[in-house]
């Protein structure tokens, strides 16, 4: 199994109050599988994604990625797991404004330890794959929203991370563009055998998902 999250609990301390955001979530994801996670606002979707993505530490519970138990107590270890296994796609794209499309991806690869010509080739490959062969040297400000999200998808796919996590990837796109990005996302995830977890409000995501999970009040239902 690519990802196994078992009995994840997460509480936040809000002043004197303890807020229970996740109350024992268990889920798994295989390579090549596309899962959509739906739920009302405030239900804990992003929190769960952050824990699976090794950005947040669960209060209790266990995350296992490709048979490696994640020791969530150590920041350096979490960063290493993120470099090695995980690609992110964010609602706001989060591209580096001073870097071209190509450089954005190259830089992410550099962080992951892929350098020089190898990084450049891989960046070109994924940009061509998301249909931006003509836009390699464009800065983000010269790209449309859909094109920016394609760059972000390409960045998540670059470097063979087996697990791709996306938080509301279509929320900042119009319906048609969002649909196109999702179609492309699905095709690439299948083709390259990645596991894809998409957190969303967007009903269109169901169309591309193999499985739909629903979360409410920190529990899967």
């Amino acid at each position: 199994m690519l990802l196994e999250a078992t009995d994840i609990h997460k509480t936040f301390q809000e002043g004197r109050e303890t807020v229970h955001v996740l109350n024992g979530v268990t889920l798994s994801l295989a390579r090549g599988e596309i899962v959509s996670l739906e739920g009302p606002s405030g239900s804990g979707k992003t929190t769960l994604l952050s824990i699976i993505g090794c950005i947040l530490t669960p209060t209790s519970g266990r995350v296992v990625i490709e048979q490696h138990g994640v020791n969530a107590q150590h920041q350096g270890e979490l960063a290493r797991v993120r470099r090695q296994y995980i690609g992110f796609v964010f609602q706001q794209f989060n591209l580096f404004p001073a870097l071209t499309a190509l450089e954005n991806i190259e830089y992410a690869l550099n962080i992951k330890g892929v350098k020089g010509v190898a990084a450049q080739r891989e960046a070109e490959r994924v940009l061509v794959a998301v249909g931006l062969a003509e836009r390699l040297h464009f800065l983000p400000r010269d790209l449309s929203g859909g094109q920016k999200q394609r760059v972000a998808v390409a960045r998540a796919l670059a470097g063979n991370s087996p697990l791709i996590l996306a938080d509301e990837p279509t929320a900042n796109l119009d319906s048609v563009t969002g649909g196109q990005v999702l179609e492309m996302f699905r095709a690439l995830a299948k083709q390259e055998n990645r596991g894809l977890l998409i957190v969303t409000h967007d009903p269109k995501v169901r169309a591309v998902a193999d499985r739909v999970l629903k979360i409410e009040d920190g529990r899967l239902i």
Partner: peptide, 16 residues
Amino acid sequence: IKEFGTVKAIGGSNAD
């Protein structure tokens, strides 16, 4: 800050 947050999210360290 948001960019640096992104650098960290994709696995970059403080040292980076």
